[in-house]
């Protein structure tokens, strides 16, 4: 392994790698945003909705959580094409990741809401708040503090899961890396480098999460 040679090759390959990082970050960002919005509804439905709807949503989350993300990605890619929805691999992949994200966020939201003692709702009722008011001023803010750490964890999971899109041909960081390797045969160096970049991104997310967690902690 020749360090100087590797750095030369790396410098020549800087644009594909940067583009790959850009694609990885956009995939993760879009999937997290869509998945979170969908997930909040899933969580609310799991906690507050009546029987038939709740069963459907429960079935949805259990099914998604029982299936590997790679299977979701491949299924989304192959199946959507067959039913005539001609999405590219990029969109199909994001859809799969967003669905995956939503089931996790849904469980996190449900867990946080159910962890709030019943007395809180009763106390809110007792001072005459309606349910939307109770949710907005009492339950929501309390649940949020529980949700944030787990949500940040999910965000890091999504960055890691975005690598799976390389398998359906989305030119994100890992696929760019593999392309470079097939040209340079420097698999050790480039896989190591890719792993390092992912580590940096996730480590940053983890740190940010801890910081936010400290910020919103209720003093006690």
């Amino acid at each position: 392994m020749d360090m100087a040679h590797f750095l030369d090759v790396l410098w020549l390959a800087r644009w594909p790698i940067l583009k790959g990082i850009g694609v990885t970050l956009s995939i993760s960002f879009l999937a997290i945003c869509c998945g979170t919005v969908l997930g909040v509804f899933v969580g609310l439905a799991l906690t507050y909705s009546k029987a038939p709807l709740r069963w459907i949503v429960r079935g949805y989350t259990d099914f998604i959580r029982g299936t590997p993300v790679l299977v979701l990605v491949l299924a989304s890619y192959y199946v959507l094409g067959t039913v005539g929805l001609d999405l590219g691999p990029f969109q199909a992949g994001i859809l799969a990741l967003a669905v995956f994200c939503s089931s996790h966020v849904g469980e996190i939201v449900r867990g946080a809401l159910q962890a709030i003692p019943k007395g809180q709702t009763e106390a809110a009722k007792a001072i005459g708040l309606t349910f939307p008011q109770t949710f907005a001023y009492v339950l929501g803010p309390q649940a949020l503090r529980q949700v944030v750490p787990a949500w940040v964890n999910t965000a890091a999971e999504m960055v890691k899961a975005s690598t799976l899109l390389s398998i359906i041909g989305v030119a994100e960081l890992l696929l760019r890396t593999q392309e470079l390797i097939s040209r340079t045969f420097m698999s050790l160096e480039f896989y190591f480098f890719a792993g390092f970049l992912y580590f940096i991104i996730n480590y940053a997310i983890e740190r940010l999460g801890r910081y936010v967690e400290r910020k919103i902690m209720v003093p006690s």
Partner: peptide
């Protein structure tokens, strides 16, 4: 903090 797919490929190919 590292994606498992990267680890899998690293062990097998690198």
């Amino acid at each position: 903090n590292t994606p498992i797919l990267v680890l899998v490929l690293f062990t097998y190919f690198a």
